[in-house]
Amino acid sequence: MEAHHVSNLLVALLLLGAAATGRALWRNRLWREALTELWRRRRLSLLTIALFISVGLLDSVAWIGGEVAGEDLLASHEARSVIDRLFLKPAEGSYSAPFATHTFYNKQPLVAPAGHPFGTDILGRDVFHRTLKGVRVALLIGGFTSLIAIPLALLLGIRAGYFGGRFDDMVFFVMSTLASIPSLLLLIALILVLGRGTWQVCVALGITSWVGLCRVTRGETLKLRELDYIQAAKALGVSNGRILLRHILPNLMHLVIVTFVLLFSQLVLSEATLAYLGIGVDGSWGQMIDQARTELSREPVIYWNIAAAGAAMFTLLLAVNYVGDALRDILDPRTLREDA
């Protein structure tokens, strides 16, 4: 199976999963109230995030064939996403400013005059196109990493907190060991030994970020375990598995969701730092910013690359952080003060 088939399939699975989760949450009265409250407080941020997610999903649905830019033979055999298909103009010669009609330095006429709202980069590629492609990378970093970190943290945290004993000691030791290595250094070391690339970066980010959530889940499970209704369920002979699934896990969901939202922005920021060190993910905003670094010292200044990538990243993170802030307020005003 080719890469774009996997991607298409994942999009379908993701949409199904999101629909199912949404339905489940909506059926629970408390969650419905929390979500309504969130919508009331953070309408603009939620819409912004929805817009970004739509772009990311559209960029993940790809197929081969169809109209291509100019005479580009290579492109006609590549899988191109919906977003790619919106940009059918061939590359320009070099830099051009936003909505310019000629290239920036040697004033050659453009193939698409005034057709590049964010200008073009050194290779003449449309910056708006690249910025939009960055959305998918950012969501991938946040999403894929969470897919690694959250299940791991939940599995270990709940088991350790609920059963205690030697397993708990072991998990606790592993957590304190990993937490003792400054996370950026661990991240760098992991990527260097795993090699550079998208999934390596996500795995490395996953390994460095599960500890925080695991600590929270373990602590909360320890507290929940002592609560009367859990004790009562035990006394009634309810199996451990059922208690974990029916009573403990649902009571941790708010922690997981808030941690995930707050983690997301940290992951994207970390990737930008990694991009600067040359070990980031290809096509990310961090990489765009990193590549645009020297452009600011040119005369006259090339600003649109860094501005586009920076603004896109900032907008997404601001919306996510703002939603995360409100979520924390709504779901848990006390225990989740600020551990992340």
Binding site: Y276, I289, L317
Partner: peptide, 21 residues
Amino acid sequence: VLGMSVSILLYIIGGQFLIGK
């Protein structure tokens, strides 16, 4: 929250550009 949403890369590049250049 605004400050937390900006990458350190942008702080550095922006600061260097604005104050230094």
